[in-house]
């Protein structure tokens, strides 16, 4: 008893679904097309260390360096702080405190990154300058709540009887946490870090507000830097010709980085942690 409306209805669902599923891949293919076209003309761009687009120098290494340095250094702070906070909340905090903390983390995680950018402009830049250090801190502020939420979710997934078995075996609480919980949850915690990394790699404006925007290699914390994303924001509206095509390569690079970090995160989150012998 197929009603007349349902057949065309299902076709509409197919059409909308396939179209929606193809939107972003098409965008990526477009970036790939333009990026590769640019590389064919000047393959040296991938290894060049000078980004002076108005003079025809399109070496993207300083931008790649800026992106990787800001993101990984931010994780270096976010992961220990976030992991510590998640452990405190999951293992030590009373239940009522956990609900409040969940709300706080949710609010912080959803806070628009410009708010952190404004905060950093006022509190970090006057002391640290518009530099790598300020950029790292703004990303740290932005991503620590997200990482904490994900780490907390990873700890909550742990089988309860495993923890109880540890206690029964006479392990102290700190041993259960360090030798058992954090070991078994390791793949999911690594996935949380990888998701957070993807967010850092892709953040544009919060970083742009404080990083100094000079295409230096990130050789020190006080050096003003420029990342792949901030380059797009700074240059899109006046780039012409070759410069414009080069920006497509810049966008493609950051998309590939973020996609790689996300894919790694998905792989890791599906992996099961091994119970230590």
């Amino acid at each position: 008893m197929t009603r007349p409306g349902s057949r065309s209805g299902w076709s509409l669902v197919w059409a909308a679904g396939l179209l929606g599923g193809l939107l972003v891949p098409t965008v990526v293919l477009y970036l790939l097309w333009e990026g590769v076209a640019f590389l064919r003309g000047s393959p040296a761009a991938l290894l060049g260390t000078d980004w002076y687009p108005t003079q025809g120098d399109f070496g993207i290494l300083p931008l790649v360096g800026g992106t990787l340095a800001t993101s990984f250094l931010a994780l270096l702070v976010s992961v220990p702080v976030g992991l510590g906070a998640a452990v405190a909340l999951h293992f030590h905090a009373p239940a009522r405190m956990r609900d409040t903390a969940d709300a706080v983390l949710g609010v912080l995680g959803g806070t628009p990154s410009v708010v952190f950018g404004l905060f950093a402009t006022v509190w970090f830049v006057p002391h640290l300058g518009a530099s790598l250090a300020s950029a790292v801190l703004v990303l740290t502020c932005m991503v620590t709540p997200t990482f904490t939420l994900l780490a907390l979710a990873a700890l909550r997934q742990l089988p309860r009887d495993l923890m109880e078995a540890g206690t029964t075996l006479g392990l102290k609480r700190s041993q259960v946490i360090r030798r058992l919980a954090l070991v078994v949850a390791r793949p999911q915690l690594a996935a949380a870090a990888s998701f957070s990394l993807a967010r850092c790699l892709g953040e544009a404006l919060a970083v742009e507000m404080v990083c100094g925007n000079v295409a230096n290699m990130p050789t020190g914390l006080s050096v003003p830097v420029r990342t792949l994303t901030t380059t797009l924001v700074q240059e899109f509206d006046y780039a012409m010709g070759e410069h414009r095509t080069a920006l497509h390569l810049v966008a493609l690079t950051v998309v590939l980085f973020a996609a790689a970090a996300t894919t790694l995160a998905i792989r890791l989150s599906n992996r099961r942690g091994e119970v230590p012998a």
């Binding site: 965008v27 990526v28 477009y30 998701f195 953040e203 994303t229 920006l247 966008a251 950051v254 973020a258």
Partner: peptide, 10 residues
Amino acid sequence: AVPSVALGLV
């Protein structure tokens, strides 16, 4: 997870 700024450029 595609960075929004890349979508902005496109």
